[in-house]
């Protein structure tokens, strides 16, 4: 119940203040021996404090690459060729490497899919968190340890004093993810980017982690970018949603509008193809075909070949964003208007 109310205030809040993070026209190219592929194509995003932006898309849609590019964490063969990433009105892509490193651990933090590989197996959980605090925040080791214990408690790890001295293999998947979140929020970041934070976890644990993230978001007044392939998770946790397909954002809307009235045929297709635990359907409405790999990306609408609403105008030119009201937009020549 309280969630829904929070949600309303967030939306109001968002309209008033400038966004904490604004991405404009971000494009990323990957160089491969077969040529360069533009895996992220002019992506615009924004997120405000206290708000959760859900970034949803299938594998290869460019959602993770977008976030890595924002933090300048792309692997060597990926490079940003266009765009700006304004964080508190400062372009991250123009910062020096030192400033960026400072910012990354502190004001912007990240949580990854697999907590087990993100933790160093030969160091205790407590050491890993307090060491990063000690380094980033210039506080003494004792203070760092105190803060770490607070954090472990905050993310709901029972008996933090004992767990502090345990190693990652002694933590279950859910507990490791809590520890990763503790590490990420220890510096009280303004922005938390969570890349498939619950994909490796069981559903009952997933529900706990999602609840924790949304709790922390409002307690610490953070902005949260939640990357996921799961529309259920989006419906559960996001305020704003950006749907990505084949390197582009195809639809952006507040979460209620998106699920009530999806306007891009891809969003609609995705929703229709989901089996649901709360109702029985005779047959799933699958979208035929599969998403194109980056070397088959075209300039025109990339969903055209799987789309039931397309005509000649969809080929060749990139569909521009159409603003629908004040809060949502869709990149489609023939957006679906009836609900």
């Amino acid at each position: 119940m309280s969630n829904t109310q929070n949600h309303g205030t967030n939306a109001d809040h968002m309209a008033a203040s400038p966004p904490l993070l604004e991405v404009r026209g971000l494009s990323v190219v990957f160089d491969t021996p077969e040529g360069s592929h533009q895996v992220v194509d002019h992506v615009d995003l924004k997120v405000s404090s206290g708000q959760t932006l859900g970034l949803v898309g299938e594998s290869g849609s460019g959602k993770s690459v977008t976030c890595l590019a924002m933090l300048r964490l792309l692997a060597a063969r990926g490079r940003v060729i266009n765009g700006e990433v304004l964080f508190q009105e400062q372009d991250l892509l123009k910062l020096s490497e030192d400033d960026m490193t400072q910012l990354r651990g502190c004001k912007i933090a990240m949580v990854f899919q697999d907590p087990m590989v993100s933790l160093n197996p030969v160091r205790t959980i407590g050491w890993q968190i307090s060491e990063s605090l000690h380094l980033h925040q210039n506080i003494s080791r004792e203070a760092a340890k105190r803060r770490t214990l607070e954090m472990l408690d905050l993310v709901g790890i029972p008996e933090p004093k004992t767990r502090y001295n345990e190693y990652p293999h002694q933590f279950s998947g859910g507990m490791s993810q809590r520890a990763m979140i503790a590490m990420a929020i220890a510096c009280e970041p303004k922005l938390l980017i969570a890349d498939e934070p619950t994909t490796a976890l069981d559903v009952t644990i997933q529900a706990q982690i999602l609840e924790l993230l949304s709790q922390l978001k409002s307690d610490l007044d953070m902005a949260l970018i939640l990357i996921t392939h799961d529309l259920g998770v989006i419906a559960e946790a996001a305020d704003e949603v950006a749907v990505m397909y084949a390197g582009r954002v195809v639809e952006e809307a507040p979460v209620f509008d998106l699920f009530d009235n999806p306007m891009h045929p891809y969003t609609l297709g995705l929703l229709n193809s989901l089996p649901r635990v709360d109702r029985k359907v005779d047959r799933l409405n699958a979208i035929e075909g599969s998403a194109p790999p980056p070397h088959e990306f075209v300039e025109g609408c990339r969903f055209e070949q799987r789309c039931g609403h397309c005509d000649d105008s969809c080929t060749g030119t990139r569909p521009d964003f159409k603003n629908i009201g004040t809060s949502r937009r869709v990149a489609c020549m023939h957006p679906i208007t009836t609900s």
Binding site: G35, S36, H37, Q38, D41, P294, H295, E296, F297, E299
Partner: peptide, 11 residues
């Protein structure tokens, strides 16, 4: 965009 680049390289 991408495919154009690739095309110009391949020939």
């Amino acid at each position: 965009m991408t495919t154009k680049q690739a095309d110009s390289v391949m020939p």
